[in-house]
Amino acid sequence: DEETLERIAKELKEKGWTLIVNGKLITDAREALKWLLEEEERR
């Protein structure tokens, strides 16, 4: 759910983690959240 996604995005940002999505590096939590939401919609 959205709360979980926001928590994940926040944790990613705090830890300075990066996500690699389709070979693209995502360092911004907002971008990561946007991607996660798009993935949820596809299901």
Rank of each mutant, 00 (worst) to 15 (best):
residue 1 D to V: 13
residue 1 D to A: 11
residue 1 D to S: 05
residue 1 D to F: 14
residue 1 D to G: 10
residue 1 D to K: 10
residue 2 E to K: 12
residue 2 E to G: 08
residue 2 E to I: 12
residue 2 E to S: 10
residue 2 E to V: 11
residue 2 E to N: 07
residue 3 E to H: 09
residue 3 E to Q: 09
residue 3 E to M: 13
residue 3 E to T: 11
residue 3 E to Y: 14
residue 3 E to I: 14
residue 3 E to A: 13
residue 4 T to H: 07
residue 4 T to G: 04
residue 4 T to S: 06
residue 4 T to I: 14
residue 4 T to K: 06
residue 4 T to F: 13
residue 4 T to Y: 11
residue 5 L to Q: 03
residue 5 L to G: 02
residue 5 L to S: 02
residue 5 L to E: 03
residue 5 L to T: 02
residue 5 L to R: 03
residue 5 L to M: 05
residue 6 E to F: 12
residue 6 E to R: 13
residue 6 E to C: 15
residue 6 E to Q: 10
residue 6 E to I: 12
residue 7 R to Q: 06
residue 7 R to T: 04
residue 7 R to W: 13
residue 7 R to E: 04
residue 8 I to H: 02
residue 8 I to N: 01
residue 8 I to D: 00
residue 8 I to K: 01
residue 8 I to R: 10
residue 8 I to E: 01
residue 8 I to P: 01
residue 8 I to Y: 04
residue 9 A to R: 11
residue 9 A to P: 01
residue 9 A to H: 06
residue 9 A to C: 15
residue 9 A to F: 15
residue 9 A to K: 08
residue 10 K to W: 08
residue 10 K to G: 04
residue 10 K to E: 05
residue 10 K to T: 07
residue 10 K to V: 08
residue 10 K to D: 03
residue 11 E to W: 15
residue 11 E to F: 15
residue 11 E to Q: 12
residue 11 E to H: 12
residue 11 E to Y: 15
residue 12 L to H: 02
residue 12 L to E: 01
residue 12 L to C: 15
residue 12 L to D: 01
residue 12 L to G: 01
residue 12 L to S: 01
residue 12 L to F: 10
residue 13 K to C: 15
residue 13 K to F: 14
residue 13 K to N: 11
residue 13 K to M: 14
residue 13 K to A: 13
residue 13 K to I: 12
residue 13 K to W: 13
residue 13 K to Y: 10
residue 13 K to Q: 12
residue 14 E to G: 05
residue 14 E to S: 06
residue 14 E to T: 11
residue 14 E to Y: 04
residue 14 E to D: 11
residue 14 E to W: 12
residue 14 E to H: 05
residue 14 E to K: 09
residue 14 E to F: 07
residue 14 E to R: 08
residue 15 K to N: 09
residue 15 K to E: 05
residue 15 K to M: 10
residue 15 K to G: 13
residue 15 K to Q: 07
residue 15 K to A: 06
residue 16 G to K: 08
residue 16 G to H: 07
residue 16 G to W: 12
residue 16 G to Q: 07
residue 17 W to I: 03
residue 17 W to C: 15
residue 17 W to H: 00
residue 17 W to S: 00
residue 18 T to H: 05
residue 18 T to R: 09
residue 18 T to V: 14
residue 18 T to P: 03
residue 18 T to G: 05
residue 18 T to M: 11
residue 19 L to T: 02
residue 19 L to K: 01
residue 19 L to F: 08
residue 19 L to Q: 01
residue 20 I to E: 02
residue 20 I to K: 01
residue 20 I to R: 00
residue 20 I to N: 03
residue 20 I to L: 10
residue 20 I to F: 10
residue 20 I to G: 02
residue 20 I to W: 09
residue 20 I to M: 07
residue 21 V to M: 06
residue 21 V to A: 05
residue 21 V to K: 03
residue 21 V to P: 01
residue 21 V to I: 13
residue 21 V to H: 03
residue 21 V to Q: 02
residue 21 V to R: 04
residue 21 V to D: 01
residue 21 V to W: 12
residue 22 N to S: 07
residue 22 N to L: 14
residue 22 N to C: 15
residue 23 G to A: 07
residue 23 G to P: 02
residue 23 G to R: 06
residue 23 G to N: 04
residue 24 K to N: 05
residue 24 K to Q: 09
residue 24 K to W: 14
residue 24 K to M: 09
residue 24 K to C: 14
residue 24 K to L: 09
residue 24 K to A: 09
residue 24 K to G: 04
residue 25 L to K: 03
residue 25 L to P: 05
residue 25 L to E: 08
residue 25 L to I: 09
residue 25 L to A: 04
residue 25 L to V: 10
residue 26 I to R: 01
residue 26 I to W: 13
residue 26 I to Y: 07
residue 26 I to F: 13
residue 26 I to M: 05
residue 26 I to A: 04
residue 26 I to E: 01
residue 26 I to D: 01
residue 26 I to N: 01
residue 27 T to W: 12
residue 27 T to Q: 08
residue 27 T to G: 04
residue 27 T to E: 08
residue 27 T to P: 03
residue 27 T to A: 09
residue 27 T to N: 08
residue 27 T to L: 10
residue 28 D to R: 14
residue 28 D to Q: 05
residue 28 D to L: 15
residue 28 D to T: 07
residue 28 D to P: 03
residue 28 D to H: 04
residue 28 D to E: 05
residue 29 A to D: 02
residue 29 A to Y: 12
residue 29 A to E: 04
residue 29 A to P: 11
residue 30 R to W: 14
residue 30 R to Q: 08
residue 31 E to L: 09
residue 31 E to C: 08
residue 31 E to S: 08
residue 31 E to R: 11
residue 31 E to D: 05
residue 31 E to Y: 06
residue 31 E to I: 09
residue 32 A to W: 14
residue 32 A to G: 01
residue 32 A to E: 00
residue 32 A to V: 12
residue 32 A to M: 12
residue 32 A to N: 00
residue 32 A to L: 14
residue 32 A to Y: 13
residue 32 A to K: 02
residue 33 L to A: 10
residue 33 L to N: 00
residue 33 L to G: 00
residue 33 L to R: 01
residue 33 L to P: 00
residue 34 K to R: 12
residue 34 K to L: 10
residue 34 K to V: 06
residue 34 K to T: 04
residue 34 K to P: 00
residue 34 K to N: 04
residue 35 W to D: 00
residue 35 W to P: 00
residue 35 W to G: 00
residue 35 W to C: 07
residue 35 W to F: 06
residue 35 W to N: 00
residue 35 W to R: 11
residue 36 L to V: 03
residue 36 L to R: 01
residue 36 L to S: 00
residue 36 L to Q: 00
residue 36 L to T: 00
residue 37 L to S: 03
residue 37 L to E: 01
residue 37 L to Q: 04
residue 37 L to W: 07
residue 38 E to F: 11
residue 38 E to R: 09
residue 38 E to Y: 10
residue 38 E to D: 06
residue 38 E to P: 02
residue 38 E to G: 06
residue 39 E to F: 13
residue 39 E to N: 11
residue 39 E to L: 13
residue 39 E to R: 07
residue 39 E to K: 08
residue 39 E to P: 05
residue 40 E to N: 11
residue 40 E to P: 04
residue 40 E to K: 07
residue 40 E to Y: 15
residue 40 E to C: 15
residue 40 E to R: 09
residue 40 E to T: 10
residue 40 E to F: 15
residue 41 E to L: 13
residue 41 E to W: 14
residue 41 E to P: 05
residue 42 R to N: 05
residue 42 R to S: 05
residue 42 R to T: 05
residue 42 R to D: 05
residue 42 R to W: 07
residue 42 R to I: 06
residue 42 R to C: 14
residue 42 R to F: 06
residue 42 R to P: 03
residue 42 R to L: 07
residue 43 R to C: 08
residue 43 R to T: 05
residue 43 R to I: 10
residue 43 R to Q: 09
residue 43 R to G: 06
